[in-house]
Amino acid sequence: MRLITAVVKPHRLDEVKEALRSAGVRGLTVTEASGYGRQRGHTEVYRGAEYTIDLVPKVRIEVLVEDDDAEQVIEAIVKAARTGKIGDGKVWSVPVDTAVRVRTGERGPDAV
């Protein structure tokens, strides 16, 4: 099993969700997140006082998948999240030892 984490622009969330549904993913977790990458925040002005806002809003999407599905799911996320402009985000995956479905106690790939 692998845990795929994607940090993307908030307004791409609906597209990413739709792409994941099409790719057969049955569950995901979304968190509001803040961060910066190469785009480094933005500037806001309040009555002439300028503020640099380093951390910009992002959404963090986490999906647990079986090993064989990982590449396809990553591709689906990347395609759906891309706008081509700086600040589109990042996707990565890590191996997962254990997964348990809380309701039934199923373990491993059955729990995905």
Binding site: S34, E50, Y51, L55
Partner: peptide
């Protein structure tokens, strides 16, 4: 206040 924001002058 806002996390990660810092005031600066022109």
């Amino acid at each position: 206040g806002a996390p990660g924001a810092a005031i600066r002058s022109k």
